[in-house]
Nucleic acid binder design. Structure first.
Lengths: 183, 183
DNA sequence: AACGAAAGTCAACAGTCGTTGACAAAAATA
DNA sequence: TATTTTTGTCAACGACTGTTGACTTTCGTT
């Protein structure tokens, strides 16, 4: 319970950094073990294989802090979590980056979809409450991920230069409309 | 110039159907040739390789019809193009589906980004015009792709059941805010 | 110090990948 | 019909994938 945990941690750290940014099937076991300075056979030994290592990466995702905020701070928190940490430095620990990088994946796409529904959409729906809560929650997530996608993946010039504060303000303006109750 | 063009067309058709939905690196040459009923060696012969076949797929993308619409129909057209054709049937010919499936790709990501900037963001910016046009165009694309991403890739329950008409109305509401001039 | 369990190393496996070159069949040209 | 060009077929290549089993080294326990 002493030496192996260290290498396990090194593997998970390297795996998260690569899996979360490049996507599951675009990263090889040898990429990870090379970065971690560990033999490739240990992945199968300790995690049962490549997929097990990926799941170990998903095991310790913190809950979305916007979900525990007060009602009038919910949108601000949500917008902040999508506007601020999208610099290359913090990408390795950003859950939303990981979700974007792994939806398309033919092997992990299903698991990712369930994760978004269970950890983001469903809690947000209950948090919002009221008529059409499910639809409004989905619409808010659309705005959040849309801006993130355009900024990070498509790297649109119109959004690349914006500061996190400016971006957060824009997201809040759009998010308010998305959450508007129309009934 | 008669028999080979037929097989070339078969290859491009099969390639587009697979590349555009699953993503470039998630599709093998043998997947395509198997679907087209053609030998795998012909890909390298006629298109110079896998990448050449993918580029041949991108060669004949029609211009975005929203860009040629009148000023007050621009948003409606844009929203329609993102709301309507996202059924599994028409996916193989939907450019936006292809863009979403290939941004993450380590080999084609760069090309896709340039394509979005050149074919979508830049023309839309010039089309909108006025102060902050570039930022407002980027924000509108964020909303458009955000809804598409949530509906198609993440398959959020809150959006999956919506009809194209309902979805279009929601996108228009959000798009109006995205295009608002704030100066 | 001697034993046994744990941790790490190494080579090799079976499979898939994109691509190639030699070859056979078909069509067009003469 | 004979010849040349086009079109398609086949097997195999080297590189890479995830995974396995036998091996050596290291460590804790008796």
């Amino acid at each position: 319970m002493s030496k192996s945990t260290s290498t396990k941690a090194k593997l998970v750290a390297a795996a998260r950094e690569l899996f979360w940014t490049r996507g599951y099937s675009n990263v090889s076991v040898r990429d990870i073990t090379g970065k971690a300075g560990v033999d490739a056979a240990l992945v199968s030994r300790y995690f049962g294989g490549k997929q097990g290592l990926f799941e170990a990466t998903l095991a310790e995702i913190p809950p979305w802090d916007a979900l525990t905020a007060s009602s009038d701070e919910l949108l601000a928190k949500a917008a902040e979590s999508f506007a601020h940490p999208f610099d290359p430095e913090a990408d390795a620990t950003n859950v939303f980056t990981m979700l974007l990088a792994n939806v398309i994946d033919p092997e992990m796409g299903g698991m990712i979809r369930e994760l978004v529904q269970a950890k983001l959409a469903d809690p947000l729906t209950k948090r919002i409450d009221g008529p059409g809560a499910r639809e409004r929650a989905a619409l808010l997530l659309s705005v959040l991920f849309g801006v993130a996608l355009m900024r990070k993946n498509f790297q649109l010039e119109g959004l690349a230069g914006k500061s996190p504060e400016q971006l957060q303000a824009e997201i809040i303006r759009l998010g308010r409309v998305a959450l508007e109750c129309r009934d």
